[in-house]
Design a binder for these strands. Structure first.
Lengths: 214, 214
DNA sequence: CGGCTGGGTGACGCGCCAGTCAGTCGGGGA
DNA sequence: TCCCCGACTGACTGGCGCGTCACCCAGCCG
């Protein structure tokens, strides 16, 4: 069993440095300082050991998320969940990087597995958003789209962190995601009435002041 | 030259159906109905033909984006750009799928190339957002983060479309992204003053009504 | 102490595929 | 007509990496 753990540790290291495809069984056993045959005593093949690492991720993320208590401070709780996900992923940035960009090059069965994880995540988020709509704290609109966007934004910022370019404090990331969900960032002028409730906002055709590219 | 075009066409088809890694040169030449040797008359190796396909994508996207005219209807123009990007990507959904999830399994040189494309895109978007901040139509805050989130959301919805689950009309996607940028979707209660301008919004600690999970 | 058991070993066999190169073929020019 | 040239061909090879299996040996039991 110690051997098994050691191999998992070694595999994580190798996958992280070389990526899934360039990681050879030989690399893993070298890093784990065991013979090749030993690897096959504990794991069926490369996919199965990788799969086990990924499952660990999923489990940790799932375990970290708390169902938000309707009566308490929503902002704090939503932020807690964002924070938990960010933490799990950034504790193993290189593996997260592999996991978050899955579509290319893994076998079909594997893609399906990750796919279904995301589906699960989206469905959960979506259900939460619908509940939110019923109680008025999520605006009307397609919750499936909201879920997709949220996960996309989350993935992208994590990938950016994981790949090392421009590392930021985690709390900054958490707050920024929250801010995006809460109010976006485009402030093009809408109807001149300034006292409109956020829910009521629709963009009327009215020439706006200035324009960025994008 | 006809041969070359034909090979590019064949390669696109094969990459789309099998993914980058599982696409064999033999598959490409079979699809193109030429002998293997012919392939090497026109392309150095698999990477180089894939690279050429990707360059095509980049060029088309770059060409489709228009600098927004400051004096005209901003919403329409921003939407135009979103629409253009969505169109290019969804015209080759399977290839887009490969391109948008790049990190795993391509050689280092290649990852760098795609990486730098995204960097370019983010930088452009960021510059646009900063211009927007100066003219007051983009809220204060880190434009680099805004750019990352926007691109992440865009990538995710395209991936969802490309992988065929739940296909939506393009205009719906365009409007939804625009809406996200404009106002997010979370509507948790902020300070009781209802007539606050959107820019002034900060979340005060105040128990909110109900809570979704997520 | 001798034999058995089971975890560990690593050289090897095999299949796969990228890339090569000696050869074919057809058209055009002398 | 005959030859030359260059586009094209596809059988072949070399390398690589997965997974196996015959062997090794430490520790335990009788």
């Amino acid at each position: 069993m110690v051997r098994r753990q050691e191999l998992l540790r070694a595999a994580r290291e190798v996958f992280a440095t070389k990526g899934y495809h360039d990681a050879k069984i030989d690399d893993i056993v070298a890093a784990g300082k065991v013979a090749k045959g030993t690897f096959y005593l504990y794991f069926k093949d490369k996919r199965s050991i990788f799969s086990e690492l990924v499952d660990g991720f999923f489990t940790r993320i799932g375990g970290a998320i708390l169902r938000v208590d309707a009566e308490a401070d929503v902002e704090a709780q939503v932020k807690h969940n964002i924070r938990a996900i960010v933490a799990v992923l950034l504790d193993d940035p290189l593996l997260a990087q592999i996991l978050l960009s899955y579509a290319t090059g893994l076998d079909a069965a594997f893609v399906t597995k990750i796919q279904s994880f995301y589906d699960g995540a989206k469905t959960m988020l979506r259900a939460a958003l619908e509940e939110g709509q019923r109680s008025g704290i999520v605006s009307d609109g397609d919750t499936a789209l909201y879920a997709t966007f949220t996960i996309g934004a989350l993935k992208e910022i994590i990938l950016e962190q994981a790949s090392g370019q421009r590392v930021r404090p985690r709390e900054e990331i958490v707050s920024a995601i929250f801010a995006l969900l809460q109010s976006g960032y485009l402030r093009i002028a809408w109807a001149k009435t300034p006292s409109v409730a956020p829910e009521a906002r629709t963009a009327p055709k009215r020439p706006s002041q200035r324009a960025p590219r994008g």
